[in-house]
Design a protein around this nucleic acid. Sequence first.
RNA 1: GCGCCCAUAGCUCAAUUGGAUAGAGCAACGGCCUUCUAAGCCGUAGGUUGCAGGUUCGAGCCCUGCUGGGCGCGCCA
Length: 585
Amino acid sequence: MKEQIALLLNGAIEALKAEGKLPADLEPNIQVENTRDKAHGDLATNLAMTLAKPARQNPRAIAEMILQALPASTVVDKAEIAGPGFINFFVNDAAIYSVVAEVLEQTDQFGRSKPTSDDRVQVEFVSANPTGPLHVGHGRGAAYGATLADLLEAGGMNVEREYYVNDAGRQMNILAVSVFLRYLELLGDTITFPANGYQGEYIRDIAAGLKQSQGDALQCSLDDLYLDVPADEPAGGDKELHIDGLIDRAQNILGAQYRTLFDAGLDSILGDIREDLGEFGVNYQCWFSERSLTSSGDVDEALKRLDDKGYLYEEGGNLWFKSTDFGDDKDRVVKRANGQTTYFASDIAYHMNKFERGFQTVINVWGADHHGYITRVKAAIQALGYDPERLVVKLVQFAILYRGSERVQMSTRSGSFVTLRELRDEVGNDACRFFYVTRKADQHMDFDLDLAKSESKDNPVYYIQYAHARICSVLRKLESEGMAWDQAMGLESLERLDSEAERDLVTALGKYPETVKHAAANFEPHQLANYLRDLASDYHTYYNGHKMLIDDEALRNARITLSVAVRQVIANGLTILGVSAPEQM
RNA sequence: GCGCCCAUAGCUCAAUUGGAUAGAGCAACGGCCUUCUAAGCCGUAGGUUGCAGGUUCGAGCCCUGCUGGGCGCGCCA
């Protein structure tokens, strides 16, 4: 529809140029927009206003000329000038109502675009360290990332979803030692748990599993384990040195068996995360291991490429990347004096690997606390010879958790947090998925647990699902009354739908495809969520004012046809959001 | 101190990316169930878009400076 109007406008401009009424070198940017106010027609353009300056004429005068030059069209009933120079278009009812047939023909494909190129897009999201269960903060990233990926797919892109597994590094070693101590505890030792260890109950569960599979094969004496380990913080020492000492001892004592301990923690937690996300409707094409970057030689390769280009230098025994050449505040260490590469080095290799795998665009969904990291990663990408624009980082702000008016403090280390699983159990997957993406991702969000749990009926997701269920109910009722829906008759009788509510509803349906495109183009799932709420609202209004099951056969079929089209669009939209469309509530 | 994000109705958030009279949901108040699902509908009330300038036909949106809040500034991951 918009395209058709734009074509008409373009025709008018060309004609005016040919007549010499507008400068021949004018390059108009034709924008056709939906009107907010029905008094302004269905569609509008600000074209005359944008041309006012380059054409050096009064906008209303230009609008007048455009109107005169506008080619005839079967779509436009009326066009008029309004306000400072808007041209408002009133679209023919038949053109507007044609969307109903379109929806019924295309069914679940309505609003979806076919891929226009072979370009592949990767969305990497959640990627939480596997040191504990996912909490509600991760939930937002999960819901946003999954919805974004589905939305981009609906928008016609080839999307792959990936989880970066941080299965290397100090945090994982701390996890291993935490499990080890709980394991020794189960074998009868009395231990003093380190201040910097992972305190959560789940550590004991992992330790129990380890004991079951390994028996006492990993047992060692506490005297041996604590040999020369610096004192912990509560004992007047340093908690970091203490835990590092324990890691060192555990590795020395267990030797090759350390891997068993380490993997027991990793496998258990990663398995739990997978299951959790799966139940949440979040699925990945790839779980990418950080450790594999080292074994595959990608880290060395990435550093070599940087070195070849002259972006590495040595200072104080460390190897530095000259990220300041690309706008970073300071240069960054990629390899320590002890020969260990840093996490940043892995990340450089990881992004190199992504591009080498052939992704045209790479989208990273990160928690807002990682924003300081963007510059250096982009610097590395650029230094490696890739266009940094091909990396898009979407920051997701924290969901601040409240119980009533009290803020809930979250810490993975201390084990005090609300897990995603707990939230899902209480609130339900549908409400969770929907609630998380109703707000713009870069907006801080308050999540009141009491409200979400106790008054879950007030959650807007039910409002949309209810509209879907209502339509299903009408169809059930229709059948039980011995009537049948005649789609062909309904489509032929659409002109009988002449009330304001009906026209509004059809107009709303027509906006679905552009809503999906717009939301995808801006990486903003909340636009789709808002659209669906508005569509449901339009339907509830309609439902309350119009009876479907009436004797007038043509009108009945027309109304049911419209309702079925609405049901289809709601279902299509909810599918993208990862929310179910129940037939009954 | 430097950098990034944010500030819209009592609360939680929108606003088609610079368009016309800033909109929803909660909460408050008043109506609507003998009738297809009341998890619904209709109505009332609620605003100097944090403050001060600037850009232009036009600013919640762009620019500058303040104020207030969140986050980040490791050879942690």
